[in-house]
Amino acid sequence: MTDDHDGVPELLAAWALGALPPGGGRAVPTHLAGCETCSAEAVRLRETVRLLDGGDPASAPSGNGATGIDGVLGPALRARPALPRVADHAVPYAAAVAGLGALLRELGGRRSWSTPVVHDWDVRDTVGHLIAADQELARHLGLEVRVPPPRGREATPWEADWETRTADVIAYERTREPSETVAEWAAQSSALLATAEARDPELASRAATLMGTRLPVADHFLTRAFEAWIHADDIGRALGLAVPPPPDGHLRRLVRLAVRVLGAALGPSAPPVLFAVTVGGEDARWVLGSEDDPVRGELAVDAVDFCRLVGGRRAPDEVPRRSTGDEAAVRAVLERAASLAWL
């Protein structure tokens, strides 16, 4: 770690959750002691984690004017009960939850909560949608789904079941105060991060079919991270608040998962395209489509643009790209990526 923040921002969310990888336990606090910018962000994230864990906001430290780890956090953090550690696969979700929690705390009165965000949802509806989306993983991991009580799950396609559930949750949350909706989302997120599967990579390696997709549970945690960030970005844009993308290390994982799903969706008979995604100034490359034919085209996009395309926040024609070769083959990749969106 250096004074130019090398690697620290990516570790702050993990530090706030007590989930630093081996070797980071000393380096991050050392950097925070001499860096006002990172120290202030660390306070925001740790305060959000306190709230997710049922802490009292009145006892949380202030993030303004931070000068060092002891002066910033003080005895309040040292006295706080330890949070369960999460494994590496769950850290991006923990970071996305902390980021969205911090954003929601910036909201003011009812006018902010009623701001249109996406589809026909306002801010509270968007949080309600996240409650419904997280419930699929929560149910699979044995957590109780409390509000509203789920209907009987008929043998219907997952899309219809999902649409019914998210409509039920949003309608229910509209009968409550926004603070109650946020508290419900925070409690469920905290419960997910406290599951054995969030802490044990071996348990998380077991496959589960959720939202029509069969993936290891570890990848379903990544999917939850992806959606939490996308909707935080939706809310931030609606309110005119800047929401940064996930740290590069987390973004690489989201991209790898999305490319794997995209490759499966294109299938082995699609015209092969060399696909490059740029994260942190470096390209990761894959050949999508047929393994038996020569590459027909090349396509390169930025990671955030690609994630927004897969998340349904960009149309294929709106994505900045660099491409050569067969335009039809390139466009097939972009259109198939856009078709994956269900957020």
Rank of each mutant, 00 (worst) to 15 (best):
V72F: 14
L210S: 12
E106F: 08
E335W: 06
S190L: 15
V261S: 14
N64K: 14
G236N: 07
L11F: 05
L193S: 08
A33Y: 14
R206C: 05
C35D: 10
L254K: 01
E282V: 12
G65Y: 02
R313W: 00
I131Y: 00
A66M: 08
P157G: 13
F226G: 02
A95K: 01
P246C: 00
L103E: 08
T126R: 00
E318S: 08
Y172Q: 00
D70A: 07
E154C: 10
G325T: 07
L77R: 12
H231A: 09
A341V: 02
P247T: 07
M211P: 09
D122C: 08
G54F: 03
A58Y: 05
V277T: 02
D200T: 07
E10R: 09
F306A: 03
V304T: 10
T67E: 12
R50Q: 12
L222C: 07
S189G: 13
A155H: 13
R146P: 01
R124G: 12
T37H: 13
H31Y: 04
L100S: 14
S39E: 15
G240F: 03
R322P: 06
D292F: 10
T195W: 00
A276V: 10
P316A: 12
T126K: 03
A40E: 11
G109V: 12
L343C: 05
P268S: 08
F306E: 01
G108K: 15
D233L: 08
H140N: 11
F306W: 05
D233Q: 11
L274D: 09
G54W: 01
A76S: 10
A337T: 06
V169F: 01
A133N: 09
A270R: 06
E144F: 03
R151K: 05
E41H: 14
G18F: 05
G289M: 07
V301E: 06
E202N: 05
L32E: 04
G68D: 15
R174D: 14
G108E: 15
L266V: 05
L309C: 12
V287I: 11
R252M: 01
A303G: 04
D248K: 04
G18V: 04
G55F: 04
E173I: 04
A40Q: 06
G34E: 09
V118C: 05
R85S: 14
G101H: 00
P272C: 04
D302I: 02
P272L: 08
R285K: 09
Y93L: 15
P75W: 10
P21Y: 02
G109C: 08
E318A: 13
P92D: 09
A329F: 04
A160K: 13
G23N: 00
T166Y: 10
V86R: 14
G311F: 02
A194Y: 03
E36R: 15
D302L: 06
V182T: 07
A341T: 04
P84E: 10
S339T: 03
D6S: 12
